[in-house]
Design a protein around this nucleic acid. Structure first.
Lengths: 181, 181
DNA sequence: GATTGATGTCAATGAGTGTTGACTTATCGC
DNA sequence: GCGATAAGTCAACACTCATTGACATCAATC
């Protein structure tokens, strides 16, 4: 018989993939269990509840090192690449678009958003200098993310092109820059 | 006995308020019927289905005149005021944040997003000049909206202050401006 | 080999969902 | 007043969902 930890890992892996691509409320525990090849009841055993299983998939969100983005240039670079090299549809969502994917779920959405924003907040404020401007920047990133990943807006979908990449870089740079007053 | 049109209007009014504040999937037909004080079955009678009722609440989305925003200045003004004077929590969502509120619902989210984007698209492109930049601008607006209305991010929540309003105006203005290349 | 505890199976529960059809009641035209 | 049509009521259906508890099965320990 398998070790319990294996089953746990199996559930967590498939839960992450499913939750992060379809959103919390669009995935049932039966679906996760079936994908993992185990019985539904084991979710309750190992994670207590569906929400417990979901929260277990959020661990990796906290493992990115914020010191990777210490200057404004590298921050812009990082974001440009994040969107330009975005994986195609059906794959896992980026951590940021995860927020939007669950925005309508008061319980889950706030959990994800808080984790994400608290993570980015200090770094963004350090670089941008203004708390409110950092919040605007973060919000704009969410918008780009949902525009690209969920709504597939014309234009944003093809962020890979050089011309568009330059435009995107320009927008981010000016957004980070200090106002002229 | 009431006229049928009255019941129809009553259902539509309460449906709009509920759908636009909690999102489509977070509102049940029974909840709408109870708020309107009528029987659930009447939703099927007058609107065919829950989705039909929802689509009926989208009519007002199409009634805003895009010619109100013909210059870049008035566009920025309109957006600044839209966010600065945003109604408090619990009230109806703005049309834009409606998109995010339903982003995780593949059926409903796309309906709302398409209506909204197709409405703004031509006007934005006319003002901004670039199709992709217009898409980015629209996406950023969605992000601001969800940051303010749904996630209540520190900073964005208080967009009414003069200092913040100035920062917001600056960000929008530079975002609309042409790149220096 | 028996006992114990971890692990996995199965069926059922109870709450919620949108939708349907038969029925009753009111309103209007004649 | 009568009949046709509109309007509203009620109960049920068929489904999905997360969760639970009783039961079975395995692995390790004594």
């Amino acid at each position: 018989m398998k070790k319990g930890q294996d089953t746990r890992d199996l559930l967590q892996t498939h839960a992450r993939r499913l939750f992060w691509s379809k959103g919390y409320s669009n995935v049932s525990v039966r679906e996760v269990a079936k994908a993992a090849g185990v019985d539904v009841a084991l979710i309750a055993r190992y994670f207590g509840s569906k929400l417990g299983l979901f929260e277990a998939t959020l661990d990796t969100l906290k493992k990115i090192d914020p010191d990777d983005f210490l200057t404004a240039d590298s921050l812009v670079d990082a974001f440009v690449e994040m969107f330009a090299n975005a994986p195609k549809e059906g794959t896992e969502a980026s951590p940021i678009s995860m927020i939007l994917l669950n925005a309508n779920d008061s319980e889950v959405g706030i959990i994800v958003a808080r984790i994400q924003y608290e993570y980015w907040q200090s770094g963004l404020e350090k670089i941008i200098g203004s708390k409110s401007q950092a919040a605007l920047f973060f919000a704009a990133m969410m918008g780009f993310s949902v525009g690209q990943k969920i709504l597939h807006l014309d234009g944003i979908a093809e962020l890979g092109s050089d011309e568009y990449r330059a435009q995107f870089r320009h927008m981010l740079t000016t957004a980070i820059a200090s106002p002229d007053f």
